[in-house]
Design a protein around this nucleic acid. Structure first.
Length: 906
RNA sequence: GCCGGUGUGGCGAAAUGGCAGACGCACAGGACUUAAAAUCCUGGGACCUUAACAAGUCGUGUCGGUUCGAGUCCGACCACCGGCACCA
């Protein structure tokens, strides 16, 4: 790395401006009704009126011990550029930052060292904050939040109570207070009603198998388990049923799916959410169980299956239940009992990996029982096999081997009958055909195309009460409790009723926040009980009731943090109503006119794709619930979302410690400064693309900033400045005052050529800002500087406009040079964005390319206002064009005004 | 297997259907310098031809199509990256 003379004194400049921004709260965003100090640049710019809002949000980081890597600031730089641009355009910009600080790493560290997670979290936050601030981002730090702060998680707990105290009313298609629930008449006792109520809540308790890692002594989320082992440490993970809190996200499946059409998100991301929700239309069909000689009828007389192809019902030749299906034991005949039980054990012992990715070979056993196919009364055998999942649909399928790949494979292996009931289109084999065709040998639906056949057979089933139309989702309810210390405690207590049964009750709002107890041992108990259970004094309440000892997952805090930024200090409510309406864009005073319509929700949210079906789905779900309950005013939280692409190491590989290709931003900043760092992160390529890091590239944009500096600063004073600096014991920002402006900079009228160069840049940069095309915006600024370097004189007004264009991208150096020009006391950050004047780009003569048969032959100069006929004449007069035509006949001449001439010859 | 994205110089990339390779990196040559660094200037897709200038041919993953004209639009395919994956 070149460590020689600095291109410009970025270290002094950046420290100076970061201090000014911090002391003067330059980037503070103002809420409706807040008094803005008259000396604040916002007041100077807006004169008391609150302008339209613009809410620009980053995905807040988990403050890990490793500190920031170069991937973090990519998105942060992009949003900061836009925030600064929108501020100059006159918007009231909300651009906040905070810490998603609950989580497993801090807890694991605490278990190893005995150090309280609070301590490590505070230290990590301090590191992250220092690193982020050293990049000069224009965050409003008065709105900084920390999910582990009781003043914050009080409201996470409060939102949980909203979920707990509501149910999803299918009649109104929204969440409602639990008090609106009507009880079926057969429920008479309070306890029956309580159980019914608890079964309807959006937050409920269920016994579910979870990922238990004995080595770590904790339960893990699905995404923390890789190939049957813990992501951290690689320890084995087993499935273990535990009593868990669940959130009824499935009630919102349809809304979460449909409302994707109302938001401006990348298609790929919407598609991931659609696939995750996994809606499929089909039918439930009931199959009677065939009576067996000498055997009692099972408790349930029938088995219900889900199918998306009810039109193939006549081809159902057997039935498969998942090994965990409730009726398996009852359906199994004595002859088959050993085989079935062995198979159930075999299936249970398989890890998820074995059950899916590696399980190419179908396995299963016959139960000995038969079912009756309702459409033709045929007896079909009932098998169990682990290719049928207990968690999807009804956990049972009708098998149509002729028209389903998996059923076909299974039928061939176990010699089960195969019956073709769909005729494939001509040229395709009907056996094994899974597409849409024509029903054959299917009774009343024979001859119908697949879509018709589905409708008709479903109607027939409904009429005979043999089945009904159904929609199924892959989405499952959200497992919401963790056996961890470092998370939000639930605002829930447990009591015993008159029959001695435990039941749960919500704590009142006045009991919030529920603080975790102080512990020294953060490890869960050997029994799998959460670590909070150790704090006996905390768990046992004076009235004999017990506290819930599970904690919420890390996602809880990130589900709603964008709302807390609106009004972070409010201790009466999570966010003041009118403030919420202003920033989320529904209030009349949110500003906006026909030219600048205010969009609902967060205007721009930038982050990585890794949260596609986690945070981004969970947050939408919570938002919809509190929207239904009237606490927020939009149905969706994030109006526009952009994913930044991953930054790879110099070797083109994903950055990782083990590969040794991690770039530390601190090193880059020390060498080249924050402005160069910001510029490079954006200059690498389009924001959304994956791209490799190249430190040589940083030098390129650093040199560009050096050229900017040399254009503005007198060379002689620069030499003196460096002299002084080398002898100064402590370099101080005051030394910057000794630098003088380049004498070429004068107060004079710019030439037409200079204005043209300037306005070309204004147009390009403005357009690029709107499209987040920062790489090409930077190149436009480079072109401007390359031109300006050749000028004899530098009109001050042109340079001021250039600095305005530069400010969002490289704010420190832009502000410093602006101050030197002493053009205005208002900082650049609050100056109006330059306006592009198309008239200044008009040319009297333009150069037109002339093609013959699409091949470039000449460039001709024509008057800008020349008619098409004149242009055609000039083109045909060109010697080179004549040579290319060379006696051939001209079939057609196309003149695209101000673009091109093409002559077709033949 | 399914879904989404991406294929353009040595490299990162740019191009509302209209001069492919802007801008930058790396590289080469020159100026300045005792020298180096820094800076400034110049060059540059490949091939062919030329002493040189100039001219010519090919060129945006592959094959085809639409069009006066295709990196861009349409169809088929290939490769790489990301996500999902026995979801009936």
């Amino acid at each position: 790395m070149s460590s020689g003379r600095k291109q410009y004194p970025f270290d002094l400049i950046e420290a100076k401006w970061q201090k000014i921004w911090d002391e003067q709260q330059t980037f503070r965003a103002w809420n409706p009704g807040e008094a803005v100090p008259p000396q604040h640049p916002f007041a100077q710019r807006h004169q008391g009126a609150l302008p339209p809002k613009f809410y620009i949000l980053d995905m807040f980081p988990y403050p890990s011990g490793a500190g920031l890597h170069v991937g973090h600031p990519e998105g942060y730089t992009a949003t900061d550029i836009l925030a600064r641009y929108k501020r100059m355009q006159g918007y009231n910009v909300l651009h906040p930052m905070g810490w998603d600080a609950f989580g497993l790493p801090a807890e694991q560290y605490a278990i190893r060292t005995g150090q309280h997670p609070r301590k490590t979290t505070e230290a990590n936050i301090a590191t992250f904050k220092r690193q982020i601030q050293s990049l000069g981002f224009s965050y409003d730090w008065t709105r900084e939040i920390d999910t582990t702060d009781p003043k914050y998680f009080k409201w996470s707990q409060w939102i949980f109570l909203q979920l707990y105290n509501s149910w999803f009313n299918p009649a109104t298609n929204k969440a409602e207070p639990i008090s609106t629930l009507h009880y079926p008449p057969h429920l008479t006792t309070d306890e029956e009603k309580r159980d019914y109520r608890d079964s309807k809540r959006l937050a409920y308790v269920a016994e579910t198998p979870v990922n238990w890692c004995p080595e770590l002594g904790t339960v893990l989320a699905n995404e923390e388990v890789v190939d049957g082992k813990s992501e951290v440490g690689g320890f084995p993970v087993v499935r273990k049923p535990m009593r868990q809190w669940m959130l009824r996200i499935t009630a919102y499946a349809e809304k979460l799916l449909n409302d994707l059409d109302t938001i401006n998100w990348p298609d790929s991301l919407k598609e991931m959410q659609r696939n995750w929700i996994g809606r499929s239309e089909g039918a439930e069909v009931h199959f009677e169980i065939a009576p067996e000689v000498g055997r009692a009828l099972p408790s349930a007389p029938r088995i219900t299956v889900f199918t998306t192809r009810p039109d193939t019902l006549f081809g159902a030749t057997y039935m498969v239940l998942s090994p965990e299906h409730k009726l398996v034991a009852e359906l199994t005949t004595s002859a088959q009992r050993t085989a079935v039980e062995d198979y159930q054990k075999f299936a249970a012992s398989k890890s998820d990996l074995e059950r899916t990715e590696l399980a190419k070979e179908k396995t299963g056993v016959f139960t000995g029982s038969y079912a009756i196919n309702p459409v033709n009364n045929e007896r079909i055998p009932i098998w169990i096999a682990d290719y049928v999942l207990s968690t999807y649909g009804t956990g049972a399928i009708m098998a149509v081997p002729a028209h389903d790949e998996r059923d076909l494979e299974f039928a061939r292996k176990f010699n089960l009958p195969i019956k073709v009931v769909v005729q494939a289109p001509p040229g395709e084999e009907s056996l094994g055909f899974i597409g849409n065709g024509t029903s054959i040998e299917s009774g009343p639906i024979t001859g119908l195309p697949t879509s018709e056949a589905k409708k008709k057979i479903t109607a027939w089933l409904e009429e005979k009460s043999l089945g009904r139309k159904t929609i199924n989702y892959k989405l499952r309810d959200w497992l919401f409790s963790r056996q961890r210390y470092w998370g939000e405690p639930f605002p829930i207590i447990w009591k015993r009723d008159s029959r001695g049964n435990l039941y749960h009750e919500a704590l009142p709002e006045s009991a919030l926040p529920v603080l975790p107890p102080d512990l020294t041992d953060f490890k869960p108990t050997a029994t799998g009980e959460p670590p909070l259970a150790r704090a006996k004094d905390w768990v046992n309440l004076p009235d004999g009731s017990l506290r819930e000892t599970n904690t919420m997952p890390q996602w809880a805090g990130s589900c709603w943090y964008y709302l807390r930024y609106l009004d972070p200090a409010n201790d009466q409510t999570f966010a003041d109503k009118s403030t919420e309406q202003y920033w989320m864009g529904t209030a009349p005073n949110a500003g906006g006119d026909s030219k600048t319509p205010v969009k609902p929700g967060v205007d721009l949210y930038v982050g990585g794709t890794e949260h596609a079906v986690l945070h981004l789905l969970y947050a939408r779900f919570w938002h919809k619930v509190i929207f239904d309950l009237g606490h927020v005013s939009t149905a969706e939280p994030f109006f526009r979302l952009v994913n930044q692409g991953l930054i790879l190491g110099e070797d083109g590989q994903k950055m990782s410690k083990s590969r040794g290709n991690v770039v530390n931003p601190d090193d880059i900043l020390r060498e080249f400064g924050a402005d160069a760092f910001r510029l490079y992160e954006m200059f690498m390529g389009p924001l959304e693309m994956v791209k490799p890091w190249n430190t040589k590239g940083v030098e390129g944009v650093y040199r560009f900033l050096g050229r900017v500096w040399r254009l503005f600063i007198d060379e002689k004073s620069q030499v003196d400045f460096e002299q002084t600096l080398s002898t100064a014991s402590t370099p101080s920002a005051a030394l910057l005052d000794g630098l003088r402006l380049n004498p070429k900079i004068q107060d004079l009228q710019p030439s037409a050529a200079q204005l043209k160069v300037l306005h070309t840049a204004i147009k390009k940069v403005t357009d690029d800002m709107e499209n987040l095309g920062f790489n090409t915006a930077i190149s436009a600024l480079m072109i401007f500087i390359n031109e300006a370097m050749t000028w004899e004189t530098l009109p001050k007004s042109v340079l001021i406009d250039f600095l305005k264009l530069l400010q969002p991208l490289a704010p420190h150096v832009a502000e410093e040079l602006h101050l030197k020009l002493a053009a205005s006391t208002t900082p650049l950050a609050y100056q109006p964005w330059p306006k592009f004047d198309p008239a200044l780009l008009v040319e009297s003569t333009i150069e037109l390319p002339v093609q013959v048969n699409g091949k470039l032959r000449d460039l001709i100069k024509v008057p800008a206002d020349a008619s098409n006929t004149d242009v055609e004449k000039l083109a045909l007069a060109s010697e080179k064009v004549k040579a290319a035509i060379d006696g051939k006949t001209i079939k057609k001449v196309i003149v695209v005004p101000k673009k091109i001439v093409n002559i077709a010859v033949g």
